[in-house]
Computed example of a mutant assay.
Amino acid sequence: MMSPKMVELHDIDVPEFLKVLDSCEGEVYLMTRDGNRLNLKSKLCQLVGLTALIEGGKIAEAFVMCEKESDESKLFRFNLYKSGNPEE
């Protein structure tokens, strides 16, 4: 069952974001303003979805929904610390 909460991400470094996505255990979905949902565990969806959001090498704004709460927490921490490693 999917978590009803979405994580809003801002000013995200794409290579670091992709590393965090690869470490997620469940499915992670990019939610578009049009109501579309792209599975970010799929490399094709990453390419299609993230290309539309990238401005100047960073993701300006994105909404993601996770199947697992642990992945949701991981992405929330990533958004807060701007790194996959909170000690950095």
Rank of each mutant, 00 (worst) to 15 (best):
S42L: 08
K41V: 06
C24I: 07
G35S: 09
M65L: 06
S73Q: 12
Q46S: 04
K68V: 15
M1V: 15
Y29M: 06
D34A: 10
P15A: 07
L40Y: 02
T32P: 07
L80W: 06
C45R: 11
D22A: 15
S23K: 04
E16A: 15
E61P: 00
I59T: 08
G84R: 11
G84M: 11
A62E: 04
V20S: 01
E88I: 15
G84N: 05
V48S: 06
E55Q: 11
L47E: 14
G35M: 08
H10W: 04
E25L: 10
S3T: 13
K68D: 14
N36S: 12
T51D: 13
S83E: 07
F17A: 10
F17N: 04
E69I: 15
L53P: 00
F78C: 11
L47P: 02
V7Y: 00
E8Q: 07
R33Y: 08
E27L: 09
L9Y: 01
L21Y: 03
V64Y: 03
L30P: 02
K19L: 12
T51F: 10
E27V: 07
M2T: 14
K5M: 13
L47F: 07
P86R: 05
P4V: 13
K5S: 11
E67D: 09
Y81T: 15
L18K: 14
P4M: 14
L80N: 13
Y29P: 01
K58R: 13
R33C: 12
S3D: 15
N36T: 13
V28T: 08
F78H: 10
D11I: 14
L75P: 02
S83N: 05
V14E: 05
L18F: 02
L53R: 01
F78L: 12
L9S: 04
C24L: 04
E27C: 07
L75Y: 03
S83F: 01
R33V: 10
R33P: 10
V48C: 05
L53Y: 04
G49E: 10
M65N: 08
P4R: 13
Y81E: 12
I54S: 02
S83W: 00
L53I: 08
F17S: 08
P15I: 12
R37Y: 06
P15E: 08
L30K: 07
G56T: 09
N39Y: 02
S73P: 00
S3M: 14
N39C: 13
S3N: 14
I54D: 00
H10M: 12
L9F: 02
P86W: 05
C24T: 11
E88L: 13
D71S: 06
L80I: 11
E8G: 05
E16I: 12
D13C: 11
M2A: 12
V64M: 03
M2N: 14
K74I: 09
M2Y: 05
L50T: 05
K68T: 12
L21T: 06
E87K: 00
F78D: 05
G35P: 05
C66A: 09
C45W: 08
I12W: 04
N36I: 08
R77I: 15
V28R: 04
T32S: 09
D11G: 11
Q46T: 11
L30A: 08
M6A: 15
V14W: 01
N79W: 06
Y81N: 12
K43G: 06
